[in-house]
Each structure stands twice: as structure tokens, then as C-alpha cells.
Simulated assay, not measured.
Amino acid sequence: MPTDDDIIRHHDADPDDAIWLTGGPTPGPVAIVGHDPAWHTHFTTLAARIRTVLGPRALSVEHVGSTAVPGLAAKPVIDIDLTVADPSDEAAYRGALEAAGFILVVRDPGWHEHRCFRLEAPATNLHVFGPDCPETVRHRMFRDWLRGHPGDRALYRAAKEAAAAVTNDEGGTVMDYNARKEGVIRAIYARAFASAGLAGSD
């Protein structure tokens, strides 16, 4: 289990360390659409597929990100956190996931040995982490906080729409869009951490 200090630390992936297998970050435009209840249905179906092909190797499968928050506008891409025993041991899970339609697109060995797979339809990012990774805890906290706090949900929606507008005007990538909303994300995290009694968030 990660420590409190691990959880509150904003340890972002270094884009220079990423090993892309499919040509780099997704180019624009960034589309933000109203919440679609079908996203939950898609996740349920995908989670069952992942658990079927991996069996006990799938330690947890969580719907995270904005599509997991009812009422929140989002990019129409399902984000899933998959926990396995060792993300660096791709032989233990990659073949099974690719047989199920998920394609490995990037490795982030310096960021918790993160791996990201993509599925074309429904559009999905499948993030693979290890059992003691603080990011999976952070993602659940952020999701659950937004589910229960409509004010921050509205704040985050406004930040997303503003970030998408600027990114699209400048012809940027999804990574540019993510950077533009980082300040609001960290402010929301700080409130979630404080509410959970996790001191020292920055």
C-alpha cells in the first residue's frame, strides 16, 4: 500500500522518458462532450472482457477519469486502471490483452512502470499499474470526490472546456490540453486530500 506521502505527491510522467510504439501523443482536435450514460455500460463490458482474458492476473479493474463521473463532460474515451502484479512483465498480460483488441501504445518505465493500451471501439485508454502504485489510489480519490462535489465537478468541466478551446485553436495535442487544466486538477486534489486527512499536499 502506498504511503500518504506517495499519494499526495504529484509525480507526473516525463514525456521525454516515454517509449511510444505507435507514433506519439494523440493529435487534436480535443472534443469535450456531455456525459453519456453508455460510458458506464461500455466500462462494464470491457472490464468483463479484461477479467476473462487475464483471470487472476487482473488484480483490479477500475473505471476512472471523467467518463466515470456521472454528469461530467468528457472526452469520449473510457479510462480504465488495470492493476497487475508487475507491469514491467509484459509477457504476463500483453498477449492476452492484444488478443482481446487492446494495443500497447506507450511505456513509461520511469512513472511507476506504467503501460497504456488503446482500444479503437469503444475508444478506450487502458492504464496498467502495479499493486502498490499511488496513481491508482489518486485516480479513485479524484473520481469519487468529483462524484460527490458538484461545485468542483462544474469547476473541472469549465477548465476542461477552456483547455480544449485553446488547444484546438493552437493545434496542440492531448498532452497540451492536459497541461492546461493541471492547476485546477491540483486544487481539486488538495481539497480531496485534506478531506481524507492527508496533510502536506502541494
Rank of each mutant, 00 (worst) to 15 (best):
E113M: 04
A38I: 07
N168G: 02
A163W: 07
P87V: 10
G172M: 03
R143M: 02
T22I: 08
P134T: 05
I78C: 10
G28I: 06
I50C: 07
R147G: 03
P37V: 03
A154Y: 04
S60M: 04
D79I: 06
K181M: 02
E62M: 01
A92Y: 04
S88P: 05
P29Q: 07
M141Y: 07
G183Q: 11
L119E: 15
R49F: 00
D202I: 02
A196F: 04
D89P: 10
I78P: 14
A92N: 08
W39I: 06
H35M: 02
P70R: 07
H35G: 06
F117R: 15
R115D: 03
P2T: 01
P2C: 01
R153I: 00
L54R: 14
G65R: 11
D176F: 01
D79K: 09
G55K: 10
P2M: 00
T41P: 00
H63Y: 07
F43K: 12
D169C: 00
P25S: 09
C116N: 14
N125C: 12
H42L: 00
L126Q: 15
T167F: 02
A158S: 09
L21K: 13
A68L: 08
D6I: 00
G148F: 00
L54T: 12
G55T: 08
T124N: 13
A121R: 15
V174M: 04
A196S: 13
